[in-house]
Simulated scan of single mutants.
Amino acid sequence: MTRSPYELSTPPDVLARLHPRLSTYFGAIPPGHVGRGEGVFDVVGTPRRWLWPVLAWFARDAVMFPVWERDVPFTVENRPARVGRGPAVQEGRVAVRAHRTFRFRSGTRTMVDAITAGPDGLVDHLGRRGRVSALLRAEVDAHGPDAGALRLVSTRVSFRALGREVRLPSRIAPRVTLVERFDDDADQQRVSLVLSAPLVGTLYRYEGAFRYEIAPDTGRG
């Protein structure tokens, strides 16, 4: 894998504004290596318990979880992969598959997703089966408080059912906003994800900090 999905789908002038320490996270993972990080999420989930039955359904496919917890230890593991539909996955698009493992008080749970470079930009396939997908717009500010941070904002959300891809109308589609930035003072990468919906507001979120490195792949995972 010579170029990452981010490098394949994001204009070079946008990536050039990234904080130098983020280039490791969003660059290509060399053959025989894996990206690993460890840190703590300040918050995970939602305090709106009426949403938990819906989140429990998504939890079955490792997308989101019916929780509201603070100070949650977690690890992230990024591996190069291929993502496609049907049996010919080996012919799919270049991707990075991420496993984020949360150590909740109730037990360990793992969130799975795969980022790939699609014809229209970055696409995040959520869950083990990738039934829900979000088209993402990448932004990097050159100035201001978030200078050098990568912000990914969903512009389209779709789901796969009965072999068909169905796009949700923008008036009802949830919106994903993910911000990854580097904190020089703490020498850590900080991440914030917010899932919101029209009229309802925030449905789910997590935010925290971690340290990340590219290491030789021992074959685990």
Rank of each mutant, 00 (worst) to 15 (best):
L195E: 00
V34I: 14
P145A: 07
L15D: 01
T75D: 03
L122M: 07
P80D: 09
V40R: 12
E69C: 02
S154A: 11
D13I: 02
L126I: 09
G86M: 02
N78V: 05
V176T: 13
F26S: 03
V200G: 06
P31F: 03
R167E: 14
F210C: 03
A173E: 06
P47K: 06
R93Q: 11
E139W: 09
P11N: 01
V112M: 01
V72C: 04
E91W: 15
I172H: 08
R164P: 01
R79Y: 05
R79I: 05
V166E: 01
D187I: 04
E165S: 13
S154V: 03
M1G: 13
Q189C: 12
V140G: 03
F182Q: 10
T218F: 01
F41W: 12
M111N: 11
R79K: 10
V166M: 09
L199Y: 13
R85F: 14
G35F: 04
T177G: 08
G221Y: 11
W68I: 04
T24I: 14
V40F: 10
V89D: 07
S106R: 14
P119V: 05
A56W: 13
R156I: 00
I115E: 11
S23E: 14
R97W: 05
A95T: 08
I29H: 05
H19W: 08
P169E: 08
V34E: 09
G84M: 06
D113P: 03
